[in-house]
Amino acid sequence: MQLTREKLIPYGTAAALIIAVAIPFLTDNMFIVNLAVLMLISIIFASAWNLLAYSGQGSLGHAAFFGIGAYGSTLIAAKLGITPFITIFLGAAVAAFIGILIGLTCVRLKEWFLAMVTFGFAIIVQTLTVSVLAPMTGGWDGIPSPRLVSPSIPGYQLIEYYAILLITIAAIAAIWYIMKSRIGLAFLAIRENETEARAAGIDPVRYRLLAFALSAFIAGVAGALQIHHIGYITPELYGVDNSFWPITYVILGGLGTLAGPVIGTVVLTILWEGLKATGITFARYVVIGVILILTIIFLPRGLVSLPEQVQEWIKRRKQKEPVTEAAAE
């Protein structure tokens, strides 16, 4: 009874969808529903980061796009009085535009350089938000953000949960489509070997910028959703922690795969809340750090590769055993 990859994917997807839809029915505990909302947002955010990494560009400052999307959406919604359901995409468009700008400075840069520029960019954006842009953004004080679904509507929490679930599914489907399309192939080609890609007629600059724009857009949607869920926005959103979390999720789940960010986020969120319930404080981060490092060293393709890896080890064990027994005799 082999669980093949082909079987695992449709079953896994179906199971995940059923659980996601059923969560509000399984528990009447709003804490769980709220946690699930935040988890869905993290999944979108991690997937956005993953898409950029898929094109071979590792960003250390994705909180910048998360925050720009959030601020953009909040300001547009507050100033023009449009429903947040529309402004999350407008805010994300602002993030995508800024993403292209920062992408332009990055297209010639490699790994560490890119990481540094994106990291610095998040700090610059935060500084601008609290200084030059303060009249608009409220500076460090922040500004209230309209709710995605007004609390005056009965059952608004469930409406909000399903709305965010739908957006999450749409985002993942979009990323799946991008990865399967010619664009995704071009991303892969650039990541693996830029010279060959160029020889095959792929313009790396164009596709790098496209990756930046798409990733920034999706990250912006995540940011806008989170802030419309919380109802208040402050520049802490641009913090380093917020840039690091999606990376941790993706690495644990599996870099460059569609399911990686989802699995990584779900597992880490449950683990995190579980550790929190035991009452430990700093040790939580130590555990996460150790898991991250162990994953990078021993499971470089993340949790998604775990079934294959386990099968491989079992196979190898079986091959090894007769040899050792013979040696013992």
Binding site: A53, E111, W112, L255, G289, I293
Partner: peptide, 26 residues
Amino acid sequence: ILGTGKLNEIFLSIGLIYIFQNGAAM
């Protein structure tokens, strides 16, 4: 992880940051 790709070092460093900062706090 030497030679397994340059992004891996960056990710590994993030893990080290978590461990050292919070280990020191403990």
